[in-house]
Amino acid sequence: MKIVVLIKSVPDTASIFKVAEDNKFVVIGNPKFIMSPYDEYALEEAIKVKESVSGEVVVVSFGDENALEVMRTALAVGADSAILVENSDADSFTGKGVSKVLAAVIKTLSPNIIFAGKQAVDDDGCQVPERVAEILGISHASAVTRFELQGLTAEADREVEGGYCTMEITFPALCTVEKGINTPRYPTLPNIMKAKRKEIRKMTLEELNLSADDVRPGLTVNSISLPRQERLLKKLEGEIGAQVKQLTSILREEKIGL
């Protein structure tokens, strides 16, 4: 069984975000890069499948050199090999371009299963894995909450409004996973050490025969803004009844949780 896991290196969302002067870029002082949390679940699921039937797990990522550390983590957790399509300008790619890059790599690997997180917590794009599956022409299922291998097929649950549905998946297939599908393991020291010595294969867009036209974004960012960073610390005043009314009108106007 050959399993590919799509992973992405993202800044820890606990970082402090600022907006650059041109209002178009996010600035993060001294960022810590982590594997996007949903990808951790995807990787864990892949390793679990591998452990149950034997096979190999290849992690594939598109990013700049910051992604290397996260790929090492993936190797320490249990991936067998890693491929990074390195591009210093990776951040400017949209889901459309990224999916083409990843699909081009995966085509050369012909995996049976592809796992990915349901979204990356930086751009929250929610589209790259599904696009990859469509480009590769394989079936896919999103936000899977249970995955069980049954011989040559698999059974998976996914949430639908008001419940969940169970489906049968024939391979090759791609699944994006939801939080809580498993508990990602903590890497062991020997594996961390081994991962340090493993080679991470690097590829470029040229090697994948992708032209600038193929990956040119069809979007431009006009501006970005910080809704707010700090808590408002607003103590409501007046009678209790008035305070409650004040609160509900704020919630209504700001469309909070309604």
Binding site: A14, S15, G29, N30, K32
Partner: peptide, 8 residues
């Protein structure tokens, strides 16, 4: 241990 921002 709480995962609060290092920058704070």
């Amino acid at each position: 241990p709480w995962g609060l921002p290092q920058q704070q």
